[in-house]
Amino acid sequence: MKINVMTDILEANDRIAADNAYAFTKHRNLVLNLMSSPGAGKTTLLEKTAEALKGKLRLGVITGDIETSRDAQRLRKYKLPVVQLTTGSACHLDANMITYALPHIDLKKIDILIIENVGNLVCPAGFKLGEDYKMMMLSVTEGDEKPLKYPQMFRESSLLLINKIDLLKYTNFSLKEAKANVRRVNPKMDIIDISCTTGDGIPEWISWLNQRYQKRFGTKARA
């Protein structure tokens, strides 16, 4: 006997993500889901962002790591609200893990929440967390063909930060080629070249954040 099912496999996750998104909107939080391969520089970016936003927008971080809490330790010295999720064997964060993290972070006291996903260019793309935007980091020590190898993640992200551009001269990474590949997969993606070491491009990234925050919640001060 055949039974018609027609059930979306990720429906349960999407429903929980919508609940998370509701909580974020209520507290006027701009939420970004940050994805990249391991070692692209996600945690260093968060350190630089924390420094640059000091006294302006208030940053909070949820960070996913398979085993250790090293990422969270690095960020604590910036006096940010940081929640470390240890995912065990899971190679991505899902909406339910974010729901568990929420009681540990005071959403009223932050403006921007960056969720640092597990370093992986495949699995995190399928799981919504309740974010406003997905964003990616790609470092020049990887390869400029990455957008074509992992199209789903590039297709769904709004912003790409190309990191470690200070190392360009030591690699055969072509910025032009990388950007052409990104455009092919996602013509609408914003791209900013940065170096977390020299600070190049960090002001442009901060201004992207500011613009998106204002677009979402306006310029009026919070009540």
Partner: peptide, 11 residues
């Protein structure tokens, strides 16, 4: 972009 269980066959 879909991902769903279409149908199942059972005894």
């Amino acid at each position: 972009t879909e991902l769903r269980v279409k149908d199942i066959e059972v005894e």
